[in-house]
Design a protein around this nucleic acid. Structure first.
Lengths: 351, 351
DNA sequence: TTGTAGGCGTTATCAA
DNA sequence: TTGATAACGCCTACAA
């Protein structure tokens, strides 16, 4: 092994120029002024020495880094990984590098990561994933982000606009309301909802919107038909089991008073619910219709195909990145994104 | 806004100690020797000033960073996102931060990212995702990684052991061979394979293993029943369409000479194939059996449930991270990981 | 135990 | 157009 590290000084010496000139030749500084002849010499020397600029040193000298922090609840979840793909794409376009944190829904780890990004002097932080109604956790994160922004960092969030920063919101209520109308128009009358965790704001909005949508048609949902459960596949599975054991959903189809359609507040829950139904000998959609939310790509081919609400997740990822990177306004911006109701085979027309 | 940035010097001054003492008090340097009394004073000052150490400056002064680079083909693909979750977990354990690149299978972007990580002086680089047989691209990446390692970086790969670095290999041939045997034992006799791209080494290994496994039972696969296609859901869909249009798979079940089971070299392809079959009025598994590879979690609930080969993807992610971080050996290590054949409803026993 | 001072690799300011 | 040289923020021998 030769010298541990080749520095710009080495290149300068090799090229027979000053450090300053070498620097200018290589990065083409603002007032680009290096005689082509010298520039060639420097570039050649750099190549010969396999010079690789130290990004940390550059960041330090320039006073700005090239990092972008992304916080997700769980990168293995297709919802988040699709958003992440949009974020990485937008970041690459902006010449930035994405630093990823998968926090497993732990507020403390979210805070820790914001702090970490602060220390890395990351250009911006993106927080994906619905908030809970844990006021303390939200306040802490709000403050951490405010502190981060007061030091010049950008920040943007996907979900609820309650962290005091630019936010891409999902039109949860409007789209679930629309979904409810569509299902009603298809002839469904008795609904149950796998509603997610009680404190989960996104879940709550979807529940509310769905209920409101039905109310507009004079249909209400009994409390016993709203089952709270985890926001995951297993949550959907267990929630449906609960409905089954309560006799709200039954094999052989809905009859007087039984549920004829189940709305799960996200796709993976809907899939879990379908599995539970299957296990119990309940046929979807013959015995009961099922709808979800998100339109996860990997799940587009399940049978029966799932009625759901499509979210442009990758676009949302790009959008939130651009928000986080654009110069901050005095007032946080809120960019709403629509969901599109997609009716598929899991909720056929009822007679 | 007060001073743009509060530095360690500010803290030192505020606490009435020297820069060195402040540094030692805050990070607890090697020979931790700071009177508790002073340490308290420094910590208090830091808190008062909301001091946040500059990770870049620290990295520079210490001569080592805290970054780990992860290269995947497509983070939205559940295969890669699950691996990524294992990588982030292991990285967090090691006190590192993961920098993510989603290269869309573009060799040039892979190279560019290795170079980028080199400049960031990342501690290690992990490359996930099967190689193609593009000798030129592989050689270029091999060289880039070698260069990176010669400068002290760690590197490890998931897939084929042909990049000259530590590798976690998947026992593609052994497991597909085993799968073939199991299917044969279930009574399947005429197979087709959705084989992925011709140059894709992982796809090729799975094809080979499957063929070999069948050969051991005296069964061979006609060339016309091996369909090359993209390594994606759409590839599986189109491949199956091809089999259908060739009349190799038909509605109403297999009869003399028709295919009674289709092996897709990964799960998302298998799902695409099932969709194509469904579209053509071919019932799975009644008319034809289908098997995949990977056991993607999100797909565990599809109907009929998919016979596949389970890979511990998250564990593989952690494992490859540990490899990349462990001190380099003169010879690259190769750690093989077994797949476990899981027979489900998509390939029931044939009479 | 604490402080002084040099160094990490670049960029940027200011003369020349 | 080029070249010294001072930052950038922190760590760490070395000295006191």
């Amino acid at each position: 092994m030769s010298r541990m590290t080749v520095t710009l000084s080495d290149v300068a010496r090799e090229a027979g120029v000053s450090l300053a000139t070498a620097s200018r030749a290589i990065n083409g500084s603002a007032n680009r002024t290096v005689r082509p002849e010298l520039r060639e010499k420097v570039l050649a020397a750099a190549q010969r020495l396999k010079y690789s600029p130290d990004a940390n040193a550059q960041a330090m000298a320039r006073g700005r880094t090239t990092a972008l922090g992304l916080i997700v609840h769980d990168i293995a979840d297709p919802y988040f990984s699709t958003i992440a793909s949009g974020v990485t794409a937008a970041a690459e376009r902006a010449g930035l590098v994405v630093t990823l944190a998968s926090t497993d829904r732990d507020p403390e780890r979210e805070l820790a990561f914001v702090d970490l990004m602060q220390r890395q002097r990351a250009r911006a932080i993106i927080v994906a994933g619905g908030r809970s109604d844990d006021a303390e956790a939200n306040a802490a994160l709000t403050e951490a982000l405010a502190e981060y922004r007061s030091r010049g960092g950008g920040a943007a969030v996907i979900g609820q606009a309650l962290l005091g920063v630019d936010t891409v919101t999902i039109e949860n209520e409007a789209s679930t309301s629309e979904l409810a109308s569509r299902l009603h128009a298809l002839g469904y009358r008795r609904f149950a909802i796998l509603a997610g965790p009680e404190g989960h704001l996104t879940a709550r909005a979807r529940l509310t919107g769905f209920r409101d949508g039905l109310a507009a048609h004079g249909v209400s949902i009994a409390d016993e038909d709203v089952v709270h459960c985890a926001f995951t596949r297993d949550g959907g599975f267990e929630g449906m089991q609960e409905l089954l054991s309560r006799g709200r959903v039954r094999p052989g189809g809905a009859r007087d008073g039984h549920v004829d359609a189940v709305f799960a507040v996200n796709d993976v829950m809907a899939v879990g619910a379908m599995a539970a139904a299957r296990t119990a000998g309940v046929t979807v959609p013959d015995d009961v219709g099922i709808a979800g939310f998100d339109d996860i790509i990997t799940l587009r081919d399940i049978t029966p195909s799932l009625t759901t609400i499509r979210l442009p997740l990758a676009d949302i990822g790009s959008l939130v990145t651009e928000l986080a990177l654009s110069p901050a306004k005095p007032e946080p911006r809120v960019v709403p994104v629509d969901g599109e109701v997609i009716v598929r085979d899991s909720t056929p027309r009822r007679d």
